[in-house]
Every structure is written in C-alpha cells, then in structure tokens.
C-alpha cells in the first residue's frame, strides 16, 4: 500500500496536487452536495422560521419587529393558550397511547415471532404490510371504514350483535382521537415489530439456553434476558415514537381535517401549526408570525426532550459484548 502510494505521489506530483490536497478535494466533492442540501432544506427553513417568529405579520406581509410577542400570545393569551395546551395535551395522549398500544403489541408480536413459530415469515409480512401502504390511502380508507352510515366497522358490530359499539367514532369528542390513534397503530405496528424482532434475533442463543438450564420460565427469559438485551432497539423506538407523536400531522389531517374536529377534539400541534400559519380556508386568518413561533416551540421541545431522553435511555442500556 505504502509503496503504491509513494509511486502515485511521485508520478502525480509533477502534474497534480499532493495526495493530502487531493484527498481533501475528494472529500469536499462528496460532502458539499449533501451539505448544501441540508443547509437549503433544513437549516435555512429553520432560521427563517425563527426570524419570522420574531416579527408581527399583517396577513402575509411582515410589518414590524415584535420580539417575543408571538410566543407570549401562544403561551399566555386566550384563546391561543387554550389551543396550544389542548393540542399539546393531545400529543401527549397520542404518545402515551401509542407507546402502550402500538409498541406494546409490537413487542408482544416480536416475542412470539422470536420463538420462530410455524408461519413466522408469513406473519412478519402480514404485520409489516400496512407500513408499506401510502398514508393518505390508509387515512382515506379508514375514514370510510369508520363512516357511521356506510362504514364496515359499524356494520361489523351490528352483525355480531354489538350494536352498542356502533358509534360515530370520528364524530364524537370522546372517541375521535382514540379512533385516529388506533388507525395509526394499525398502520405502524409492523415497524417496531420488525425492529424488536431483529434485536431479539441478534441475541446469541446460548443466553436463552443458559437461562433455561438455570430454571427460568418464559416470563423470566423475556424479562431478564431479552428485555435488557434489546434495550438499544427500545431506545430507538421510544425516540421515534416520541418525535412521530409530536410531529403528528398527516393522519389527523386526512382523517379528521385541519380544524381538529369535532370541536378541536382531534387537534394536535401539527394541525394547529398548519392552521395558524396558512389559515383555515373556511374560517380562520393566517398568521405567519404565530405559526412560525409555534414551529420554533415544537422544534425546541422535541429536540430537548429527545436529546435528554436518548441520554437517559442509552445510559441504561446493557451493552451486548
């Protein structure tokens, strides 16, 4: 290697740059395009949002420096404060419920599939299939399924004699958010399942064998061998679920609508941001300032909490050496 490099250096020194410079140039060529992409599509919008949030807006025109006024309004002035807290609280509900319903079920499925029962491959595909479907399609389909007059969900309850469960799921404040969360879990459950399953499969078989020889039952194996060893996967899933829950927009937008109906029962920060920045066609007035301020708050919250959480979870992970 060394000889080869020397020869190249000797030969090339007459015509081209020295090796070190060429290496830097080569790295630059590789790095500049993604860096430009990152700057244009990530950093630039973030900086603009931050600047926008510090100004007062009249319609879509920027009028004057407002300092932290937009933030104050969102956090302390009614009805904005009420909307912010309501949407934030719904995001918390979404996160907690998804952790239990979506990721809990995923863990259960992964543990079952981890034992390689008959038809494992088939079930793996079945569970993962909804993840591959376009989200807009999933949202639209489920909206039809849950339609109180023509939807198959209520039809099903009627047929099996559970008429009491035949409800206008998306139209009631008490059930609408829950219905959306269940659809989200249905769509995504395959993803954490696959991640957990991959983590389980990477555990050396001897560990299970040793535990069983020591007299551990299935629960003990799952609790004391599998669980600590799949901790890195759990960390990733928790963080991704957290970010996904607080950025939740597409499914409620497709299934419920931008105003979080009925009466803000399905409102989440994503919808609230969109509505504030771009306006509800059928009712509201847009305000880039307040919208940007909301985006900045969401970004900071997600960044801080996920960083903090990653550190805590990472420190608790048991390294598989």
């Amino acid at each position: 290697m060394g000889i080869q490099r020397q020869t190249t250096n000797k030969e090339s020194s007459r015509f081209t740059l020295p090796y070190r410079s060429r290496r830097i140039l080569w790295l630059a060529t590789l790095l500049v395009p993604p860096l430009l992409f990152f700057l244009t599509f990530v950093v630039y919008p973030m900086v603009t949002a931050l600047i926008y949030s510090l100004y007062e807006w009249e319609g879509i025109g920027r009028v004057g420096f407002a300092g932290l006024e937009n933030f104050r309004k969102l956090l302390f002035d009614q009805p904005f404060q009420g909307w912010t807290l309501n949407a934030f609280w719904h995001n918390v509900i979404v996160f907690v419920t998804l952790m239990i319903v979506q990721n809990g079920v995923a863990l259960l499925l992964a543990l079952l599939l981890g034992n390689d029962p008959w038809g494992t491959r088939f079930y793996q595909v079945v569970f993962f299939l909804p993840v591959t479907l376009a989200l807009v399609l999933v949202g639209f389909q489920w909206r039809l399924f849950l339609n109180p007059l023509i939807g198959i969900v209520n039809r099903f309850f009627d047929v099996v004699g559970l008429e009491a469960l035949s409800q206008p799921w998306l139209g009631q404040a008490s059930t609408a958010l829950f219905a959306l969360i269940i659809v989200n879990a249905w769509r995504w459950v395959g993803f954490p399942t696959i991640v957990f399953l991959a983590a389980i499969r990477s555990i050396p078989y001897e560990y299970f064998e040793a535990a069983r020889l020591d007299g551990a039952n299935e629960w003990h194996v799952a609790r004391h061998v599998t669980w600590p060893l799949i901790a890195p996967a759990v960390t990733i899933i928790v963080i991704l679920t957290f970010i996904g829950s607080f950025n939740w927009f597409d499914l409620p937008y497709v299934m419920a609508g931008v105003d979080g109906p009925p009466g803000r029962a399905t409102d989440v920060l994503g919808l609230y941001f969109y509505r504030t920045a771009f306006g509800e066609v059928s009712g509201g007035i847009q305000d880039f300032g307040r919208g940007s301020a909301l985006a900045v708050l969401m970004f900071l919250f997600i960044l801080l909490v996920s960083t903090f959480w990653t550190r805590i979870l990472r420190s608790r992970e048991v390294e598989l050496s």
Partner: peptide
C-alpha cells in the same frame, strides 16, 4: 343518523 359522524361529503 349518527349525525355527529356524518361529514360534508357523506
């Protein structure tokens, strides 16, 4: 019927 869940399109 179940008008709470009946949207514009329906």
């Amino acid at each position: 019927p179940d008008f709470e869940g009946v949207d514009y399109a329906t």
